[in-house]
Simulated scan of single mutants.
Amino acid sequence: MKMSEEVAFGKWLTELRRHFHKYPELGYQEIKTSQKIREILTELGVPFIYPVAETGVVAFLKARSDGPVRAFRTDMDALPIEEQNNVSYRSRHQGIMHACGHDGHMAIALGIVRKLVELKWTEKGRGKILFIFQPAEEGGAGAARMLESGALEDENVEAIYAFHLNPGLDLGKVGVAKDVSNAASDMFEIKVVGTGGHGAHPHVATDVILTTADVITKTHHIVSRSINALDSAVVSVGSVHAGSAPNVLPSEAVIAGTIRTFREEVRKHIQDTMKEICSG
């Protein structure tokens, strides 16, 4: 590829990623995101199936010569987060942001499609390549919905390549994992219910704030105190909501967070231990 072509291609990728970043959409609401993807696929002359699992897209390139069927998968949805970055391509949708890199993932996938088209892969390559644009990765079981749709049933896919942005890698480098690279993710929500009261009279109320703090402390001890040091696991509390006034004891508190594990046995142990903590 000539230098001028490389520059043009890089500019195209950057503009594409920034477009997705400016207009983020939540899971199963990726209407305009999906539309943009389909517009580009149409411009490149690449056939696709839509809708899949409501807003998903499956595109494909088939070579003249027979060969293996492989797939690239990318996610499409954003997160319910207010963007604080002061950049020209800042999110235009209040309270929604591409904070997990899915804007970059979509740009990468479409970049692969464009490059294969420009290299005339369908004439020179072998087999078939699918491009899976999946909705609702951030909760909502988008991957399961894509499989349940039947869009891949007739495809004997030998391998699916997923990718994720990693700011820990130097610019221009791509990392490949020999084994499992990303943990299974579970979300949890714990509601602590008691009797509210005045802050000056805690003895006649049930202090859910104190109980909540105890639950959080014990939850954070699960990995360090009951998981084998050779097993990787994470339990993180990311949200705590209780009360609205400094002198009033609330009657309810809500704790929410995430669990990350690599083995089902560890996953089940953490879940069971959290249930024990909550049951007292």
Rank of each mutant, 00 (worst) to 15 (best):
A141C: 14
M106E: 01
Q35M: 11
V157W: 06
V254Q: 14
G104V: 00
K120R: 13
K120V: 06
H241P: 02
V180N: 13
V215S: 00
K268A: 13
R38D: 10
M1P: 15
D186H: 06
V248R: 04
M146F: 04
E43Q: 15
S185Q: 13
S236T: 14
T195R: 13
V204T: 03
G127T: 02
E158T: 06
I209G: 01
S239M: 14
I227W: 02
L13W: 04
L44M: 14
I270R: 01
G168D: 13
A53H: 09
A59G: 10
S91E: 05
Q134M: 10
F60G: 05
I255L: 12
I160W: 04
Q84H: 08
K191A: 09
T33C: 08
G257S: 13
T195G: 06
V113F: 09
V7W: 07
R126W: 04
M1S: 13
L13Q: 07
E15M: 12
R114H: 13
L13N: 04
K268G: 03
K191V: 11
L210P: 00
A177I: 01
G67F: 12
G150S: 09
V192T: 03
D214N: 08
L61T: 01
A53N: 06
E39A: 15
Y50F: 15
H105N: 06
E15T: 14
K218W: 00
E39I: 10
A200W: 13
E25R: 11
H198F: 08
D170H: 09
H201D: 11
P202A: 09
L41R: 03
G139D: 10
M274S: 02
L152R: 07
N166T: 05
V235P: 01
L110I: 03
G196H: 07
T33L: 07
R267T: 00
G56S: 07
G111K: 08
R145I: 00
